[in-house]
Nucleic acid binder design. Structure first.
Lengths: 334, 334
DNA sequence: CCAGGCAAGGCAAACGTTTGCCCCCGCTTG
DNA sequence: CAAGCGGGGGCAAACGTTTGCCTTGCCTGG
């Protein structure tokens, strides 16, 4: 149980006061060149590393080098990519990341939000659980920098990074229509999530533009989980006049829909076409390869972390909101 | 920038000393019932939450409620599942998890190991970068509890949770042989990783058991990344006497091999069979569905976290090492 | 020659806990 | 009646930093 060297040890060795050591480390205050030399040497000799905990305790609200990231579920590849983006830029600036999964559970979100504050993180990145998230607003009021990703908050005037969900859905469904599909089933997301709503809006607008009627019986809404994709696809494909193609609003539900299609022995794209939101790991080698809307998840995380770092440096800077473009990847499933 | 209530505030409100408050919270020391009541009420009224940073600073080596998890890459679904397992049991015990990706990069691993110690985490879970990992050994010597997952350390006498890689590979290749394959290509992992070695050993033992010769030209070794899976599959399938089936030693490389197979227009399983280590998201709905060796990733994380929590409570307890069984999921690709 | 200024660096408080030590008081025991 | 004891709770140090303020000595301008 060897203890790390502390400021005191370094100070003793360099024959200066601890404040001098602190100041040479942080480049704050006036210290003579020769003294700095001595201090630096002592640090090197002792292998000194500043204690992050003590630093955070003292220096409330700056330079604690810890970022919080709260996401629904790391098992969702979209969020894994996003997390990776965050971590990479954090690492480059010597920040570490406290990662939590809240599972769309408000109690859990609240718990983790508390943890983040009690850990005095420098800032938090998260997709709010819904558009009016009082817990998040509270955190913001406390003065902790927050950046929203993927989903956004109605109020609060926060930095945010989103994907243009409307555009992505619009392009996808336009393409489906261009392929000759007239009855397109929608497997949408929850109506109270901004992503769910926007994608549905894209689906509808594509129909409107093409002068196609919207049929309620072709529009179903799930919870972004695989199970609901399967169930809803079965419902749609079991209709007496089933859709000739399916537009599925996220990756997990797409996997579910694919299950249903396989179970019914339907051939893609001949008997049923499918386009899903989110790139999937095996999509390219799937048989047939899957046409998807790829979200730039990594970039979302990267941009969010960059924004957060900037805000930590300058809390007065005007808030910026980024909208990244998804990409329709044309393959063979529709 | 409203500050949280502190011990001092609670003490003032309950008209007691801060030590009394601390002791009622931690159930340490003798405090009268009525005093406890007063303190508890004051805490409730002020919405007091103990400051985790201060607590960690003071109480070195216990109850700081933070676990460290260092993994190669969260984008690898195996580690995402594992991370989720860790987080779920951590959450249940009010622990938070500091997650870092080290990308098989020793400098990065070292950096994060430092961070963990400087953050005074209660314990660390990680797959060591290789079997003799001096940085990890150093951390152990410093007195921080460590649990190895997936891979293990040659020395150190640590708690660990692994998957029976040898068994998994053995069963898979046995099955391939039972299907009539006599020339089975191996796309293996790095020779200096325990997982890579064990799986290769399983491949070899299956051949030995069946009295089949090992052909060097059929055994290739990659780095567990998709790219190398593709390249090596191309090499193997381009042989003048190519293998009739491929055994691929992790998920990412399996995806790569599938790319190569698709590029060559080969039909699975008629022209080439394939079995991969790791379950893949779309494996079940793939055409044909993929036969894989499923690793219980979530359980590995779960067990590791449980072991770590136990060790944090009692540092003297004998070390235990778990070996979880993988499962051969028979589908149609071989 | 002196006041004022500036560079260099020391002193000590503060961040919010935990914890060893001590004190007080009332009761038991011999 | 004195000594001992134990329950209840206060005091203050300590964890390792950062930082406001102060001191010192030297230099410069008037």
């Amino acid at each position: 149980m060897k203890k790390n060297a502390s400021l005191v040890d370094v100070a003793r060795r360099a024959k200066v006061n601890i404040s001098t050591v602190s100041r040479t480390i942080n480049q704050t205050g006036k210290i003579g060149m020769d003294t700095q030399e001595r201090v630096l040497r002592a640090m090197r000799e002792l292998g000194y590393k500043p204690n992050r905990v003590a630093r955070r305790l003292r220096a409330r609200g700056s330079s604690s080098f810890l970022l919080g990231l709260i996401i629904p579920n790391i098992q969702n590849i979209f969020f894994a990519d996003l997390a990776r983006g965050v971590e990479d830029v954090a690492y480059r600036s010597n920040y570490a990341v406290l990662l939590c999964n809240y599972d769309e559970d408000e109690a859990k979100e609240r718990f983790y939000l508390d943890v983040m504050q009690l850990e005095s993180v420098d800032g938090i990145i998260l997709p709010p659980i819904h558009e009016e998230d009082p817990a998040v607003l509270q955190v913001v009021r406390n003065g902790t920098p927050v950046v929203c990703v993927d989903r956004s908050l109605a109020r609060g005037g926060l930095d945010k990074v989103e994907v243009d969900n409307h555009l992505g859905a619009l392009r996808a469904v336009e393409h489906m229509i261009a392929q000759g599909h007239r009855r397109i089933g929608l497997i949408g997301g929850p109506a109270d999530s901004s992503t769910g709503k926007e994608r549905t809006r894209g689906y509808k607008d594509a129909h409107l533009q093409a002068g196609l009627p919207l049929k309620t019986e072709l529009m179903r809404f799930g919870d972004f989980k695989q199970e609901s994709g399967r169930t809803l696809a079965h419902e749609l494909l079991g209709l007496t006049d089933p859709p000739s193609a399916l537009f599925v609003c996220n990756g997990l539900m797409t996997a579910g829909a694919l299950e249903a299609i396989a179970a019914r022995g339907l051939k893609i794209p001949r008997q049923v076409g499918i386009v899903g939101f989110d790139e999937l790991p095996l999509a390219e080698v799937f048989n047939p390869p899957l046409t998807v809307v790829r979200q730039p998840a990594y970039e979302v995380g990267k941009c969010a972390a960059e924004l957060l770092l900037k805000r930590i440096e300058d809390r007065q800077r005007p808030t910026t909101s980024l909208k990244l473009h998804p990409e329709l990847i044309l393959r063979k499933s529709c």
